[in-house]
Amino acid sequence: MSATNTDPRPKASASRRHRLAERGIDTQLLMLIPALLFGLLLFVYPFTYGIGLTFQPLPRTQEQWGGGVFANYVAFFKDPFLFDSVWITMRLALPVALFNVLVSVPIAFKLRHRFRGKRLLSTLLVLPITLGTVLTAQGLLIFGGRQGWVNRFLMEAGIIDQPFPIVNNYLGVMLSLIISGFPFAFLLISSYLSGIDPAIEAAAKTLGANWKQRFRRIILPLLAPGLATTFILTFVLAFSVFPSARLVGDALGETRVMALMAYRAFGEQQDYAMASTIAIMMGVVELVVIAVVLLWRSFLYKGTTGGKG
């Protein structure tokens, strides 16, 4: 060491990258910059442009609803035809996401163990991923329409005398969303579940926990992050429902979902500004739901690891 060096500690011999990493800086992430720039161009620009559009309402919107540059938002909140679509979409997406997650858990649980026919069963459960929404919708129409197999069978068996409305309503869209969303939920939860060492459950067993206690005290807390993620994903999938709402739903009534409204504003009314507003509001609603779920998750996590006992 030279005499002028006043630092008594020898200079760290670790490489520069190591020293940066100690402070949480990963230099390799710099390589992402080109991709980020590209993303900025492709995504952020149109996105901000869209936001900009929402503040340029058409004159007729301004006339009808007032509010100056905020006329689109005023219209969104004041026009029941528009605003109700938030609840209509929620009414579909929340139960569907909840159903997908809640039903996946016991099935994924059962399928953890080895048994004959497991592969066949899991293939059947995941198969709908390969069907597009349109194919699913078509299947549902053939299966559940007024002249569909189900109704024909039920009527001929004398169980009902009027066709039971399965499609072209809320139920139809819900079924279609479950068929396309369930495989995702099932796959995700299965993989989260397989990440939990079976010995942990066995340990709880030897300590005297029955299956309810094991599930509540051990599996559920360990699975909670996975449940939250899965819920969010299937919720977002269901929330942006468009094709099935139109094909197997009641596009002007019960299943007048936000995506349909945005499409109507864009395609039928040539009101780009309103369409953008609805799209932005969709994002806002989704963000609110995601925030609530993450809050629940962090609450649950803290609740079970609890610092002070």
Partner: peptide, 21 residues
């Protein structure tokens, strides 16, 4: 069943509950 036997077991990989202190 296992939970009624009242046997304590120490597992080879410990199998501690990772989320509990």
């Amino acid at each position: 069943p296992s939970e009624k036997r009242d046997f304590g077991m120490v597992f080879q990989n410990y199998a501690l509950f990772p989320h509990l202190s």
